[in-house]
Design a protein around this nucleic acid. Structure first.
Length: 272
DNA sequence: CTGTTAACCTGAGTGC
DNA sequence: TGCACTCAGGTTAACA
Protein backbone atom coordinates (compact mmCIF):
# COMPACT_ATOMS: atom_id res chain seq x y z
CA UNK A 1 0.00 0.00 0.00
CA UNK A 2 1.94 2.93 -1.29
CA UNK A 3 2.54 5.83 1.05
CA UNK A 4 5.03 8.58 0.38
CA UNK A 5 8.19 6.43 0.73
CA UNK A 6 6.78 3.84 -1.64
CA UNK A 7 5.82 6.47 -4.19
CA UNK A 8 9.25 8.07 -3.89
CA UNK A 9 10.85 4.65 -4.36
CA UNK A 10 8.82 4.14 -7.52
CA UNK A 11 9.72 7.63 -8.76
CA UNK A 12 13.43 7.03 -8.30
CA UNK A 13 13.25 3.65 -9.95
CA UNK A 14 11.25 4.92 -12.87
CA UNK A 15 12.93 8.21 -13.70
CA UNK A 16 16.18 6.99 -15.29
CA UNK A 17 14.26 4.59 -17.54
CA UNK A 18 11.57 6.93 -18.81
CA UNK A 19 13.09 10.41 -18.97
CA UNK A 20 13.69 11.37 -22.58
CA UNK A 21 11.44 8.65 -23.96
CA UNK A 22 8.86 9.62 -26.56
CA UNK A 23 5.32 8.35 -26.24
CA UNK A 24 4.12 6.27 -29.17
CA UNK A 25 0.67 5.33 -27.89
CA UNK A 26 -1.40 5.35 -24.74
CA UNK A 27 -3.46 2.19 -24.38
CA UNK A 28 -6.33 2.29 -21.89
CA UNK A 29 -7.80 -1.17 -21.33
CA UNK A 30 -9.80 -0.19 -18.25
CA UNK A 31 -10.68 3.45 -17.80
CA UNK A 32 -12.67 2.93 -14.60
CA UNK A 33 -10.10 3.80 -11.97
CA UNK A 34 -10.74 6.16 -9.03
CA UNK A 35 -11.85 8.59 -11.70
CA UNK A 36 -12.24 7.78 -15.38
CA UNK A 37 -8.97 7.90 -17.31
CA UNK A 38 -9.54 10.86 -19.65
CA UNK A 39 -9.71 10.19 -23.36
CA UNK A 40 -7.50 13.24 -23.89
CA UNK A 41 -4.46 11.19 -22.80
CA UNK A 42 -4.38 8.75 -25.74
CA UNK A 43 -5.36 11.65 -27.97
CA UNK A 44 -2.75 14.19 -26.86
CA UNK A 45 0.30 12.34 -25.52
CA UNK A 46 1.67 10.52 -28.57
CA UNK A 47 4.70 12.35 -29.92
CA UNK A 48 5.50 14.02 -26.59
CA UNK A 49 8.58 13.15 -24.57
CA UNK A 50 8.76 12.62 -20.82
CA UNK A 51 10.95 15.41 -19.46
CA UNK A 52 10.84 14.63 -15.75
CA UNK A 53 9.17 12.46 -13.13
CA UNK A 54 8.23 14.56 -10.10
CA UNK A 55 6.27 13.78 -6.97
CA UNK A 56 3.79 15.83 -4.96
CA UNK A 57 2.54 13.97 -1.93
CA UNK A 58 1.60 10.56 -3.23
CA UNK A 59 1.02 11.79 -6.76
CA UNK A 60 3.56 11.05 -9.46
CA UNK A 61 3.81 13.80 -12.04
CA UNK A 62 5.02 12.98 -15.53
CA UNK A 63 6.14 16.26 -17.07
CA UNK A 64 5.64 16.14 -20.81
CA UNK A 65 7.44 18.05 -23.54
CA UNK A 66 4.15 19.53 -24.73
CA UNK A 67 3.79 21.30 -21.38
CA UNK A 68 1.16 18.99 -19.99
CA UNK A 69 1.48 16.86 -16.87
CA UNK A 70 0.17 13.34 -16.34
CA UNK A 71 -0.90 12.66 -12.75
CA UNK A 72 -0.59 9.09 -11.53
CA UNK A 73 -1.79 7.97 -8.10
CA UNK A 74 -1.16 4.37 -7.11
CA UNK A 75 -4.03 4.21 -4.64
CA UNK A 76 -3.88 1.09 -2.56
CA UNK A 77 -2.62 -1.48 -4.97
CA UNK A 78 -1.20 0.30 -7.99
CA UNK A 79 2.07 -0.71 -9.60
CA UNK A 80 3.86 1.27 -12.24
CA UNK A 81 6.62 -0.60 -14.04
CA UNK A 82 8.90 -0.02 -17.01
CA UNK A 83 9.49 -2.74 -19.57
CA UNK A 84 12.11 -2.97 -22.32
CA UNK A 85 9.46 -4.87 -24.23
CA UNK A 86 5.88 -4.91 -23.02
CA UNK A 87 4.69 -8.47 -22.38
CA UNK A 88 1.15 -9.54 -23.20
CA UNK A 89 -1.13 -7.77 -20.71
CA UNK A 90 -2.34 -9.74 -17.72
CA UNK A 91 -5.27 -9.16 -15.41
CA UNK A 92 -5.49 -5.60 -14.04
CA UNK A 93 -2.96 -4.17 -16.52
CA UNK A 94 -5.12 -1.10 -17.10
CA UNK A 95 -2.94 1.49 -18.84
CA UNK A 96 0.18 1.33 -21.05
CA UNK A 97 2.33 4.19 -22.28
CA UNK A 98 4.29 2.67 -25.14
CA UNK A 99 7.57 4.26 -26.20
CA UNK A 100 8.87 5.05 -29.64
CA UNK A 101 11.68 2.55 -30.17
CA UNK A 102 10.06 -0.11 -27.99
CA UNK A 103 9.07 -0.85 -24.44
CA UNK A 104 6.90 1.27 -22.23
CA UNK A 105 5.37 2.04 -18.89
CA UNK A 106 2.51 -0.04 -17.51
CA UNK A 107 0.01 0.49 -14.69
CA UNK A 108 -1.40 -2.56 -12.94
CA UNK A 109 -3.96 -1.89 -10.20
CA UNK A 110 -6.19 -4.71 -8.94
CA UNK A 111 -8.31 -2.57 -6.64
CA UNK A 112 -8.57 0.37 -9.01
CA UNK A 113 -8.18 2.93 -6.24
CA UNK A 114 -5.45 4.52 -8.29
CA UNK A 115 -5.84 7.33 -10.79
CA UNK A 116 -4.41 8.50 -14.10
CA UNK A 117 -5.34 12.07 -14.90
CA UNK A 118 -4.45 14.80 -17.35
CA UNK A 119 -3.29 18.20 -16.20
CA UNK A 120 -3.21 20.33 -19.33
CA UNK A 121 -0.75 23.19 -19.58
CA UNK A 122 -3.66 25.55 -20.09
CA UNK A 123 -5.02 24.78 -16.62
CA UNK A 124 -3.56 26.90 -13.81
CA UNK A 125 -3.77 24.42 -10.96
CA UNK A 126 -5.20 21.01 -10.30
CA UNK A 127 -8.03 20.36 -7.84
CA UNK A 128 -6.30 17.32 -6.38
CA UNK A 129 -3.05 19.17 -5.68
CA UNK A 130 -4.17 22.67 -4.80
CA UNK A 131 -5.20 22.03 -1.20
CA UNK A 132 -2.30 19.75 -0.28
CA UNK A 133 -0.23 20.65 2.76
CA UNK A 134 3.56 20.95 2.78
CA UNK A 135 5.94 18.15 1.91
CA UNK A 136 7.30 16.60 5.12
CA UNK A 137 10.88 17.53 4.24
CA UNK A 138 10.00 21.11 3.37
CA UNK A 139 10.91 23.85 5.85
CA UNK A 140 7.26 24.88 5.88
CA UNK A 141 6.51 21.71 7.83
CA UNK A 142 7.76 22.59 11.30
CA UNK A 143 6.65 22.58 14.92
CA UNK A 144 5.27 26.10 14.89
CA UNK A 145 3.23 25.37 11.77
CA UNK A 146 1.81 22.17 13.22
CA UNK A 147 1.03 23.91 16.51
CA UNK A 148 -0.74 26.83 14.85
CA UNK A 149 -2.70 24.63 12.51
CA UNK A 150 -3.91 22.28 15.23
CA UNK A 151 -5.34 25.00 17.52
CA UNK A 152 -9.02 24.47 18.21
CA UNK A 153 -9.13 21.09 16.48
CA UNK A 154 -11.04 18.31 18.21
CA UNK A 155 -9.96 15.62 15.78
CA UNK A 156 -7.56 12.91 17.01
CA UNK A 157 -3.91 13.77 16.42
CA UNK A 158 -3.51 10.67 14.25
CA UNK A 159 -6.32 11.74 11.93
CA UNK A 160 -4.90 15.27 11.91
CA UNK A 161 -1.49 13.94 10.82
CA UNK A 162 -3.02 11.76 8.13
CA UNK A 163 -4.98 14.68 6.67
CA UNK A 164 -3.25 15.67 3.45
CA UNK A 165 -4.05 19.31 4.14
CA UNK A 166 -1.87 19.15 7.26
CA UNK A 167 1.10 17.44 5.63
CA UNK A 168 1.35 15.02 2.73
CA UNK A 169 2.68 11.49 2.88
CA UNK A 170 1.67 10.33 6.36
CA UNK A 171 -0.65 7.41 5.72
CA UNK A 172 -1.78 4.92 8.30
CA UNK A 173 1.56 3.15 8.73
CA UNK A 174 3.81 6.17 9.02
CA UNK A 175 1.38 8.19 11.12
CA UNK A 176 1.33 5.37 13.67
CA UNK A 177 5.11 5.02 13.65
CA UNK A 178 5.68 8.78 13.87
CA UNK A 179 3.34 9.09 16.86
CA UNK A 180 5.16 6.29 18.64
CA UNK A 181 8.57 7.85 18.10
CA UNK A 182 7.28 11.26 19.17
CA UNK A 183 5.67 9.64 22.24
CA UNK A 184 2.31 11.23 21.42
CA UNK A 185 -0.94 9.38 22.02
CA UNK A 186 -2.83 9.07 18.72
CA UNK A 187 -6.22 9.74 20.33
CA UNK A 188 -5.15 13.11 21.78
CA UNK A 189 -7.30 15.90 20.32
CA UNK A 190 -4.99 17.80 18.00
CA UNK A 191 -5.87 21.08 19.68
CA UNK A 192 -4.28 19.84 22.89
CA UNK A 193 -0.86 19.21 21.35
CA UNK A 194 1.89 21.19 23.05
CA UNK A 195 4.46 23.03 20.97
CA UNK A 196 7.22 20.61 22.04
CA UNK A 197 5.01 17.68 21.06
CA UNK A 198 4.49 19.27 17.64
CA UNK A 199 8.23 19.66 17.27
CA UNK A 200 8.79 16.02 18.22
CA UNK A 201 6.18 14.96 15.68
CA UNK A 202 7.92 16.82 12.88
CA UNK A 203 11.28 15.30 13.77
CA UNK A 204 9.75 11.84 14.14
CA UNK A 205 7.79 11.96 10.89
CA UNK A 206 10.86 13.01 8.94
CA UNK A 207 13.01 10.32 10.55
CA UNK A 208 10.45 7.62 9.86
CA UNK A 209 9.86 8.69 6.27
CA UNK A 210 13.55 9.12 5.52
CA UNK A 211 14.36 5.70 6.92
CA UNK A 212 11.53 4.12 4.96
CA UNK A 213 12.67 5.73 1.73
CA UNK A 214 16.22 4.51 2.33
CA UNK A 215 14.92 0.99 2.76
CA UNK A 216 12.76 1.08 -0.33
CA UNK A 217 9.42 1.40 1.42
CA UNK A 218 7.35 -0.99 3.46
CA UNK A 219 6.20 -4.14 1.77
CA UNK A 220 3.02 -5.54 3.21
CA UNK A 221 0.94 -7.26 0.60
CA UNK A 222 0.60 -5.11 -2.43
CA UNK A 223 3.61 -2.94 -2.80
CA UNK A 224 6.69 -3.47 -4.89
CA UNK A 225 8.98 -0.84 -6.36
CA UNK A 226 9.36 -0.06 -10.04
CA UNK A 227 11.91 -2.86 -10.17
CA UNK A 228 9.43 -5.27 -8.59
CA UNK A 229 11.60 -5.69 -5.49
CA UNK A 230 10.26 -5.64 -1.97
CA UNK A 231 10.88 -2.87 0.55
CA UNK A 232 12.44 -3.54 3.91
CA UNK A 233 10.98 -0.97 6.26
CA UNK A 234 8.50 -3.45 7.70
CA UNK A 235 11.37 -4.78 9.80
CA UNK A 236 11.50 -1.42 11.56
CA UNK A 237 7.81 -1.14 12.42
CA UNK A 238 7.39 -0.54 16.14
CA UNK A 239 3.62 -0.39 16.52
CA UNK A 240 1.85 -0.80 13.16
CA UNK A 241 0.28 -4.26 12.97
CA UNK A 242 1.58 -5.18 16.44
CA UNK A 243 -1.59 -4.90 18.55
CA UNK A 244 -1.37 -7.16 21.60
CA UNK A 245 2.38 -7.60 21.28
CA UNK A 246 4.90 -6.10 23.71
CA UNK A 247 6.20 -2.58 23.19
CA UNK A 248 9.77 -2.81 21.91
CA UNK A 249 10.78 -0.06 24.35
CA UNK A 250 9.01 -0.87 27.63
CA UNK A 251 7.33 -4.24 27.12
CA UNK A 252 3.82 -2.97 27.79
CA UNK A 253 1.14 -4.68 25.70
CA UNK A 254 0.35 -2.49 22.70
CA UNK A 255 -3.22 -1.25 22.52
CA UNK A 256 -5.32 -1.33 19.38
CA UNK A 257 -8.39 0.74 18.55
CA UNK A 258 -9.96 2.23 15.47
CA UNK A 259 -9.40 5.95 15.11
CA UNK A 260 -11.28 7.67 12.31
CA UNK A 261 -12.13 4.25 10.82
CA UNK A 262 -8.45 3.25 10.69
CA UNK A 263 -6.77 0.48 12.58
CA UNK A 264 -4.49 2.14 15.12
CA UNK A 265 -1.95 0.76 17.57
CA UNK A 266 0.04 2.48 20.30
CA UNK A 267 1.86 1.94 23.56
CA UNK A 268 -0.29 3.17 26.48
CA UNK A 269 2.82 3.77 28.58
CA UNK A 270 5.24 5.38 26.12
CA UNK A 271 2.64 7.54 24.34
CA UNK A 272 0.86 10.07 26.54
C1' DC B 1 -16.70 26.38 9.27
C1' DT B 2 -15.86 21.43 11.79
C1' DG B 3 -16.34 16.71 12.16
C1' DT B 4 -18.09 12.11 10.76
C1' DT B 5 -19.35 8.57 7.57
C1' DA B 6 -19.97 6.05 3.29
C1' DA B 7 -18.21 4.86 -0.93
C1' DC B 8 -15.05 3.14 -4.30
C1' DC B 9 -12.58 -2.12 -5.25
C1' DT B 10 -10.36 -6.78 -5.12
C1' DG B 11 -7.61 -10.19 -2.89
C1' DA B 12 -6.13 -12.25 1.26
C1' DG B 13 -7.27 -14.20 5.37
C1' DT B 14 -10.48 -16.57 8.68
C1' DG B 15 -14.03 -19.52 10.45
C1' DC B 16 -17.16 -23.14 9.57
C1' DT C 1 -12.38 -27.76 -1.05
C1' DG C 2 -15.60 -24.18 -0.80
C1' DC C 3 -18.48 -20.84 0.89
C1' DA C 4 -19.60 -16.57 3.51
C1' DC C 5 -17.70 -13.21 5.68
C1' DT C 6 -14.39 -9.45 7.26
C1' DC C 7 -10.65 -6.59 6.56
C1' DA C 8 -7.22 -3.63 4.36
C1' DG C 9 -6.74 1.31 2.95
C1' DG C 10 -6.19 6.85 0.16
C1' DT C 11 -9.14 9.99 -0.95
C1' DT C 12 -13.26 12.49 -1.81
C1' DA C 13 -18.11 13.45 -1.61
C1' DA C 14 -21.89 13.77 1.01
C1' DC C 15 -23.80 14.55 5.16
C1' DA C 16 -24.84 16.30 10.14
Amino acid sequence: MPELPEVETVRRGLAPHVIGRQIATVVVREARLRWPVPASLPADLPGQRILAVDRRGKYLLLRMSGGDTVLVHLGMSGRLRVFDALPAPVKHDHVDWTFVGGGGLRLNDPRRFGAVLHWPQSQTGHALLDHLGPEPFDDAFNGAYLYARSRGKQVATKSFLMDGRTVVGCGNIYAAESLFRARVRPTLPAGKLSLPACERLVVAARAVLRSAIEQGGTTLRDFAGADGLAGYFQQDLRVYGREGQPCRVCGTTLKGQRIGQRASVWCPKCQR
